[in-house]
Design a protein around this nucleic acid. Structure first.
Lengths: 344, 344
DNA sequence: TTTGGCACTCGCGCGTTCAGAGTGCCAGGA
DNA sequence: TCCTGGCACTCTGAACGCGCGAGTGCCAAA
């Protein structure tokens, strides 16, 4: 890679940067003359043309047809993001607005809902927020509630405020004392622990109960483990699909597969799953594994209540997007959500 | 109305029915010649033309421009739905598939999620399902969990399987005995009651506790009442937005406002709110209050675990939709969801 | 290495043409 | 009175041709 890039001197990079910026703004192929007019490159159109020819040779830009301007390729955007763009920080008023908007949330659902809407509004694109995953969370409390003689409701509350509940059909009638003992035992061992660690900590629990109660205890534990293991039941919230209509003129062709992809939680989860936890990830065009998203870019990042990231959020937009602005918004929102989660 | 309709003899109604059916199928204005070919009306094109002129005169159909075929108007669809169409029942295999698909659900979230996806698939349109509302539900159980000395989690479980939880910050440390007493008192009075009735039943509860504990009791009750009153926090689930792409060729113009409307939970709730509880409601075109939906129709119906409907579900599609089929699917799905809820 | 000049290439928008579908109307027939 | 076949008319949409202009590549000179 260094070899290729070395061939591009500073001016060629400046030209590429200018092309990306102009194209993102105008949505139209940009020509040499327009370039020198709008950016003071200090050289003539002819010179720019030579540079453009070089850039095209290297595959960073592309012209739809002879006698048309140039358009950045996926590779061009990649170079732009990696070496030419700076994340654009949010302005102070924007930061205040974000903060203020998120502060009003009452529970986890609300936090996620507000976050996703905010992100969609800020970027004017499609926003995706993953619920804090169970894997990295710790147990805050486990509650058992007798609803009927042989029916118990199991409620699991995590430190991120997430609540999971399951019905348990017990093999026989469940005494209130047994339930109380079990509740105490569960909480004393599991509270504060990471969810994936919990099963290991409860292994010898049935042995501590009387023979007659063991089936009940085992059944409850089984349901609990099931709930803990259900990472696949990760939820996602979406907003801003209406922004897809600003995608381009060649409409239905582009929008349909994107809408389809957005409906598939699995695809979205996989998309976010490919995010590096700490660093912001930008996947451009065909870098996205999924077929329907080859003309989109995904900007995503992890967020969390402390140092560790417990879930991810991101934005999906056309490859022709304002990368610095989008990245700035994504980073800022992730940071503030983390703060909110840490406080609650 | 009878006056107007009387002017339309049976053949004219048959012509209207044929026009609606053909137009729904082909998406193209339908002419007199094509009509007699595809439906055996037993008369010549010229006769049909006369009838069409009459129908147009009455405002049931409309021609985009001279020398084009006819298109049904909203009024035409209305007449079709009211008098000419029969709800098309699902076939036995379809019913089995519905049943089977919904049976796999594990909790309320899952039921709703499966329902909405199923409905979107069956109708190939946008489906909307409202979570069982709190208003019509009854209390199954109220649970209080001490998370910290002065922090209590309140969990409300309804007969529809919905779980609401709230944090309560108490004025002082809360004793475990008080909590237990309160829990018992709450459940003995509220269990099985309709949610809106609960506050009235708990009025003199604080008086039954010792002076010192009353602030705590009041605080918990206040939060409970708040939770009960939060009907506005009604949730909705959506699926099938990708089907919007099949709306028409005149794309972005139509799809944008629809997507925007779909993002606004408030609008969707109001839309479903206008549904008659028992009967299926069909709102055609401009009958929908909301501006963005004037070129869509909404088919909705209530569903519930027993006789009473606890929430609503429906489908949003172009006014040019297959009404009999859509209505059949909506009715069938609503019925089966009701059954599932009653069982769990 | 940069620059101005120049010939060349296409896509786009525009006006024109043309065929086909559909209509309204009318006069004749059941 | 109602239906039908015939006929002239209207209008859209596709196809075609044409000219403009933006943009290019190349070359020779600075």
């Amino acid at each position: 890679m260094a070899g290729e890039v070395r061939q591009l001197d500073d001016r060629k990079l400046a030209v590429l940067r200018a092309i990306v910026q102009d194209y993102v703004g105008t949505e139209e192929p940009v020509g040499s003359k327009a370039l020198v007019e709008r950016h003071n490159l200090g050289v003539s159109p002819a010179t720019v043309r030579n540079d453009m020819a070089a850039l095209e040779e290297e595959g960073y830009i592309h012209q739809p047809h002879t006698s048309a301007g140039r358009i950045p390729t996926d590779k061009g955007y990649r170079l732009f993001v990696d070496r030419l763009a700076e994340v654009k920080p949010m302005s102070a008023p924007e930061r205040r607005a974000i903060r203020h908007f998120l502060d009003g949330a009452v529970d986890l659902d609300d936090v996620v809902a507000r976050t996703v809407r905010l992100l969609a509004q800020l970027t004017r694109q499609v926003a995706v927020v993953q619920y804090p995953s169970l894997t990295r969370s710790t147990v805050r409390h486990i509650e058992l509630v007798a609803l009927a003689p042989a029916k118990v409701m199991l409620v699991l509350i995590t430190n991120t405020g997430r609540v999971e509940q399951r019905m348990v059909d017990c093999p026989g009638t469940v005494g209130e004392t047994v339930l109380a003992d079990l509740r105490t035992a569960l909480n004393s061992r599991a509270a504060g622990r990471l969810l994936p660690d919990v099963p290991g900590l409860l292994e010898e629990l049935p042995a501590m109960f009387e023979q007659a109660d063991r089936p009940t205890v085992s059944t409850v534990l089984a349901t609990l483990f099931e709930t803990l293991a259900e990472q696949n039941e990760e939820r996602i919230m979406l907003a801003g699909t209406a922004n897809l209509t600003r995608f381009g003129h060649d409409f239905p062709l582009t929008i349909q597969p994107v809408l389809e992809a957005l409906e598939e939680q699995v695809i979205l989860l996989r998309l976010l799953g490919e995010t590096n936890d700490a660093a912001m990830t930008v996947r451009i065009g065909r870098e996205n594994a999924y077929e329907g998203l080859i003309s989109t870019s995904v900007v995503s990042v992890g967020y969390g209540s402390g140092d560790e990231s417990v879930a991810k959020l991101g934005v999906i937009g056309p490859t022709r997007m304002d990368y610095p602005g989008t990245m700035g918004a994504v980073r800022a929102v992730a940071r503030y959500v983390g703060q909110i989660l840490a406080e609650s």
